[in-house]
Amino acid sequence: MAKSYLEIVETARSKMKGVPKPSPVVPASPFIGKPASRWMEEAAQSPVPKMLFDQFWFEGELCVLYASTNTGKSILAFQIGVYIASGMPNTYWAMSAGKQTVLYFDFELSPRQFTKRYSEVENDRYVHLYKFPEFLRRYELGEVDLPEEVSLVDYYIEGIRKEVQQTGAKVVIIDNITWLNHRLEKASDAGGFMQKLNKLKREEELSILLIAHTPKRDATQPITINDLAGSAQLMNFMDSAFAIGCSTQDPQLRYIKQIKVRECEKVYGEDNVIICMLEKVGNFLQFTFQDYGSEREHLRDFSENDKAQRDADILELYEALKSYRKVGEQLGVSHQTVKRVVDRAKTESETRGSTDDDEDPPW
């Protein structure tokens, strides 16, 4: 007679009684330990990283360039790519890495917009197209054929890896990271995204420049790490970072500022930013060097009207977000400033309410 399912289970359980459970498999240690002197001896055999873009970006670095919308960060990034791919000598930007292949992943511009930047217009036609170096390859996003089991970020990163392996390139510029991960404001997503990029950098021995946006910021204050969207997680993974600011002296004037460095001392800090003019020279839209100067000279003065508008923006946004830090990140001010404005508004409201209570009734 065939046993029932319950009888089979009970038989199996009785046989398992007294049998010791297998010990859990402990993975090997994730750490690599060597005497400190050996680390130095081995590292000393590697070549000293060379400059890809002056003191801002060195070989082997994961670097970020960030700025507000319409500041010209994509223009500067592509200009850097042209310089590296052509190996052309430059009077103002120190670039010692030499000519090499550059892969520029452009998720911002359409072919027409791109052509407009690097040509001239005559009789409603684009003419005198700029002749780019053959070592510069530009990519746009094609049709996405995403397998169900693969995340969008993994799909993009592995696509970049494939192009790197096919071309042998070691320099990659990604414009911009919002396209690769639309949820970088969340710390967990930003951290995972940066880990994958760093893994790609190490495995393929790449130098990567990321282009990123800044949230709305206070134009009266110097640019800081906190102005990078998702700054807390993103900046921790960066080897270097630099930013572009708009000058109040002229609508087309820009300044470039170092934010984070590892390979060198900070040369272009707030007391020595690079001043440039954003202009089209013939058929090439570019940053042209003007001078060096102090960042403070290019910031907007903070008037009483500005302060009143800032405080109104803080109170409006705080009503929606209920978070000092989130409001501060979006408006480019410290969370302490947000708290002071909110507390002052509450105190004033309570004072008005108390005064109203003391007034005589109107009848």
Rank of each mutant, 00 (worst) to 15 (best):
H182E: 12
R183V: 09
E185Y: 10
K186C: 01
S188E: 14
D189T: 10
D189S: 15
A190L: 04
G191K: 13
G192D: 09
G192T: 03
G192H: 02
M194T: 04
Q195Y: 06
Q195L: 13
N198C: 02
K201W: 06
K201F: 07
R202L: 15
E203R: 11
E204H: 05
L206K: 11
L206H: 09
S207D: 12
L210Q: 07
L210R: 03
I211F: 08
T214Q: 14
P215H: 13
K216A: 04
K216E: 09
R217T: 11
A219D: 14
Q221V: 09
Q221T: 05
I223A: 14
T224S: 15
N226M: 12
L228W: 07
L228C: 02
L228N: 08
A232N: 14
A232P: 00
Q233L: 12
F237D: 12
F237R: 13
M238T: 08
D239M: 12
D239Q: 08
D239H: 14
S240N: 14
S240L: 10
S240C: 08
A241L: 10
F242G: 04
A243F: 07
A243L: 04
I244H: 06
G245C: 02
C246D: 10
S247C: 03
S247V: 07
T248G: 00
Q249Y: 00
D250W: 06
P251G: 07
Q252Y: 06
R254C: 02
R254G: 01
Y255W: 15
Y255I: 00
Q258W: 01
I259Q: 04
K260M: 12
K260C: 09
V261A: 01
C264V: 10
E265W: 05
K266T: 06
K266Y: 02
K266L: 14
Y268F: 14
E270Y: 03
E270D: 13
E270V: 05
N272T: 04
N272L: 03
N272V: 04
I274W: 02
M277H: 12
E279V: 07
V281M: 06
G282W: 06
L285C: 12
Q286V: 06
F287D: 03
T288Q: 14
F289D: 05
F289T: 03
Y292C: 00
Y292D: 01
R296W: 00
R296H: 01
E297C: 00
L299E: 06
L299N: 03
D301G: 01
D301Q: 08
S303A: 08
E304L: 06
D306P: 00
K307T: 11
K307W: 13
A312R: 13
A312M: 05
D313H: 12
D313L: 15
I314C: 09
L315Q: 14
L315A: 05
E316M: 08
E316F: 09
L317Y: 04
L321W: 11
L321G: 07
K322L: 12
S323V: 11
Y324G: 00
V327E: 10
V327G: 04
G328R: 08
G328S: 11
